[in-house]
Simulated scan of single mutants.
Amino acid sequence: MNPYTVLVLLVALERLAELVTAQRHARWSRARGGVERGAGHYPVMVALHTGLLAGCLLETGLLHRPFVPWLGWPALAVALAAQALRWWCITTLGPRWNTRVIVVPGLPLVDRGPYRWLRHPNYLAVVLEGLALPLVHGNWITAAVFTLLNWPLLVTRVRCENTALALGLATAG
């Protein structure tokens, strides 16, 4: 098994860890009156992120993409930085973090960690990873397709989250 395949499989394991964490956090949120919004786009998001990982492996294998050091090493650094940012978001939000949009009414917005500078820093991690992970091994088609398909999903997701957060905050007053 080549190192790139190992990297992609490690990212897949990380995604599974996220899903386990998200399920635990969903139970926590629902026990406190949390309401899910935007469940309709969730399967699309799961399919797209699964497709990213599959695309990385398929493009490398089918098109015999070589590792190009001048592109691969910086892309690896960006992909790892994206993972670090993602887990910084997860640890900052604690049980409020989820892969779904579940807002517990009355809880204030988090304004520490990466949320001090960005409203949706996890989506920066998604964008960076969607570009960088495929480019570690020169998979420019996967990077381009994921980015193009992810853009409207991110717009939908951010609107959904902003609406859900506004509704959650409104119920506090």
Score class of each variant (00 low, 15 high):
92 T>C: 13
21 T>H: 00
46 V>P: 11
49 H>L: 11
84 A>I: 03
16 L>C: 03
23 Q>A: 03
61 G>K: 06
151 W>P: 01
2 N>H: 09
99 T>L: 12
173 G>Y: 01
24 R>E: 10
92 T>P: 09
148 L>Q: 11
155 V>M: 12
150 N>E: 09
151 W>F: 08
124 L>F: 15
111 D>K: 10
26 A>F: 06
21 T>I: 02
38 G>M: 04
135 L>M: 14
82 A>K: 11
14 E>K: 02
22 A>W: 03
6 V>F: 01
119 R>L: 06
31 A>M: 08
40 G>S: 15
134 P>L: 11
110 V>F: 02
16 L>G: 05
42 Y>Q: 08
107 L>V: 00
54 A>I: 15
125 A>L: 15
88 W>V: 06
52 L>E: 12
96 R>P: 12
145 V>L: 07
86 R>W: 06
117 W>S: 08
43 P>T: 11
96 R>D: 14
40 G>I: 12
53 L>P: 10
163 T>H: 10
135 L>W: 10
11 V>C: 10
135 L>K: 14
109 L>A: 14
119 R>E: 09
65 R>K: 13
117 W>I: 04
6 V>L: 00
56 C>T: 02
131 L>H: 02
67 F>N: 05
78 V>L: 15
142 T>L: 12
114 P>A: 14
79 A>N: 04
105 P>C: 00
10 L>A: 05
83 Q>T: 02
31 A>P: 08
60 T>D: 00
77 A>C: 05
67 F>C: 03
27 R>F: 07
114 P>E: 09
33 G>R: 05
59 E>P: 14
103 V>E: 00
114 P>L: 15
95 P>F: 04
91 T>A: 01
32 R>L: 13
59 E>M: 13
77 A>P: 02
68 V>R: 11
90 I>N: 04
70 W>A: 15
86 R>G: 12
33 G>W: 07
149 L>S: 00
80 L>P: 07
115 Y>P: 08
108 P>A: 11
171 T>D: 01
127 V>K: 08
17 A>S: 10
123 Y>G: 10
147 T>C: 06
140 W>E: 02
57 L>Q: 04
117 W>N: 06
62 L>T: 02
33 G>Y: 04
6 V>A: 06
131 L>E: 09
83 Q>D: 00
113 G>C: 09
111 D>L: 06
122 N>R: 05
141 I>K: 08
90 I>S: 04
125 A>T: 14
110 V>H: 00
169 L>V: 13
78 V>R: 08
50 T>A: 14
154 L>F: 06
116 R>M: 10
88 W>E: 00
162 N>S: 02
123 Y>S: 08
39 A>Q: 04
143 A>F: 07
67 F>Y: 02
51 G>L: 13
54 A>N: 08
90 I>L: 01
147 T>G: 00
119 R>F: 03
54 A>W: 12
130 G>M: 13
94 G>Y: 05
122 N>S: 03
97 W>G: 01
36 E>H: 05
145 V>E: 05
152 P>I: 02
12 A>L: 07
63 L>V: 05
43 P>N: 11
118 L>T: 14
45 M>N: 07
